[in-house]
Design a protein around this nucleic acid. Structure first.
Lengths: 354, 354
DNA sequence: GCTAGTCTCTGTATCGATACAGACTGGATC
DNA sequence: GATCCAGTCTGTATCGATACAGAGACTAGC
């Protein structure tokens, strides 16, 4: 049997409290006794207070959870997510906190259980789509959280770090519209929860439930509305998840249509890179001159020459963790909007006249 | 006050046990009563059993820890580590387990506390150098673990997944030696715990404490010993950590020596890419034709044309988690050696004659 | 010599649940 | 009518620690 704190107390001949103090409040006992206790503990092979028991009694755990909508393995496939995690990790590390990665599996009962059972002091909600129930569970547990995807109904009491998705998306779309493009495809991930890969007809952008996706698509649409291209004239393409493969599958066939789009605006760099993959695969002679844009400005975007919108990934993660671990007294300071920048590279160009 | 299980029991007029059963053992009570209990819980805003209390009583937590020697933020900078994590995540997800990332900070007391306090059922030890104490803490806690860096004294009872570092390193070094290179630099990270960046004199490879680094350097040395180049004739270069920046700093100046190396064998792709960065920065006319090799075959290696040794990263992570979560009955099956392959690309070539 | 204050250490209550043995029903079986 | 059994539910002990009030012993101060 593993020795308990009681066993150490018995061995030394002091009370449990004193042994506990030896570990957690060294100033509460004499240095000599403390040494004697730690020595006995070493000898008995006592590994220190049991973390679970300790957190039960103390009421906090010393780790924060990061909630992902998607599978855990996707989180590591998406460079933006990785950089976000790095930021969270950096801040957590500074606070002596570890991070628990909690994936939300597709099956809601399981996913719900994961949120209910996570032993954490709070959550960074990386990307919860319409999983409003997850936030409810967190609130019911009385845990603080920071979300990164704004929702319209989010109260100001809710801590948040993110960008103005709509304005950022509009900026890159305005650039594309300015190049003369009018036949345009918008590519996004999880436009509707279980939609298949490929073109998707939607009466309006407000049908899109995921706030981030909604914001970006709405921003794209805004820019084209400005130049007289309505929603109905835009081709909406759905990718079942945020990966190059999914994007490639979604746009396959798009360029063989009678009137193919001259530009594809993607909701993320990963999707945009998937579009570039598809184009690169075609024989050079049969490669349509399509402009492609991304979103995020992940490291790969630079080498691919992708025009995109930069948002500060690590900083987003860092601030999210910071808002959680060291909440500002002022409620308004709990709502952080980060800057974005349009980055024009070689993947966009003037519409070819033909 | 947050409602407890007791509160729900009181509200419904049943015992605590019954409420507990409603959540954890539905077959122990009638469906009708269960519904009544869950209904009351919903109404009271009871979020389900407290995870900490539950794990204290049940004796397990439902999450596994991943131990990093380096800072948490490095873990996300190194593509190999990211892919390893993805593998761990995938397996963990299949088992309904979350993963706790535990960084080992430089200060040993803090780091020790992190291992002692991690609420986990076991550890994947990603890269523990000479931190033997960490393993001792884990053993003292009575927790299972899987290590990925073999140590000579590792008993067979210790679960392990990795590669034959020495043989793999030898294969790439043999390739370089076969190209005629004899003036060679070996670049590795943390050759000695606190050594500065740059060349380092060492009487023999056995002075290197970190088992992975030791294995790779020894493999490099083996291959050159075969062609008559002894340890003393090789230039050993230390990088303080495993990053492009550290590598660049370590080899800065190396190529301005009177007799510069014609090849640099790096202990990881990240380091090798750092060397390539340094070479790329030099004006084309003054760029020495140096062969460079890496180790791991991360995604970036392919686009950089880096000759390297491929090892299956995700699989390593997946198997590590699997060995932890679903230990094989047969002890020998707990010791997995993965295959490696030499990948020759454009970063190596015949030694220039001059 | 007496009160106050500081250092150490102890004892009990408590954190919020689950395990397990047993009590009570209401049929089915013989 | 006694026995057995499966299906439900209860009660107590327990998981392994920390919080907090307070008990003694000592030193200071007047």
């Amino acid at each position: 049997m593993k020795p308990t704190l009681q066993a150490v107390a018995d061995a030394v001949g002091v009370s449990r409290s004193t042994v506990s103090n030896a570990y957690s409040r060294p100033d509460q006992l004499s240095a000599a006794l403390r040494e004697r206790i730690l020595g006995a503990a070493r000898q008995l092979g006592y590994p220190g207070p049991n973390p679970t028991a300790r957190s039960l009694r103390r009421g906090f755990v010393g780790s924060i959870g990061v909630l992902f909508t998607s599978q855990l393995s996707y989180a590591f496939t998406d460079p933006f997510a990785v950089r976000f995690l790095a930021g969270v990790g950096e801040a957590a590390e500074r606070h002596g906190t570890s991070m628990l990665l909690v994936p939300l599996s597709r099956a809601e009962p399981d996913a719900r259980r994961a949120v209910e059972n996570a032993a954490v002091d709070g959550f960074c909600v990386y990307c919860v789509a319409d999983e409003e129930w997850a936030l409810e569970v967190i609130r019911a547990r009385g845990l603080p959280y920071v979300s990164t995807a704004a929702r319209d109904d989010a109260g100001l009491d809710e801590r948040f770090v993110g960008i103005d998705e709509r304005a950022a998306a509009r900026s890159v779309a305005t650039h594309v519209a300015g190049l003369g493009h009018r036949r345009v495809a918008l590519l996004a991930d999880s436009v509707l929860p279980d939609a298949p890969a490929g073109p998707l007809a939607l009466s309006g952008v407000d049908q899109v439930p995921h706030p981030t996706t909604h914001g970006r698509l709405a921003g794209f649409a805004d820019a084209f509305a400005d130049v007289g291209v309505g929603w109905a004239e835009l081709t909406l393409v759905n990718a079942p998840d945020n990966s190059r493969q999914a994007a490639a599958a979604a746009v396959a066939g798009l360029f063989d249509r009678p009137t193919p789009p001259t530009a594809v605006l993607a909701g993320s760099d990963v999707l945009a890179l998937g579009v570039l993959d598809v184009l690169a695969e075609r024989p050079a002679g049969n490669r349509p001159p399509v402009s492609v844009t991304g979103f995020d400005d992940v490291p790969e975007a630079a080498s691919a020459g992708l025009t995109t919108v930069r948002q500060p990934a690590e900083e987003k993660g860092r601030i999210a963790a910071e808002l959680l671990l060291d909440p500002p007294a002022d409620a308004a300071a709990g709502h952080v909007l980060l800057p974005t920048a349009l980055v024009v590279r070689t993947s966009t160009g003037p519409v070819p006249r033909s």
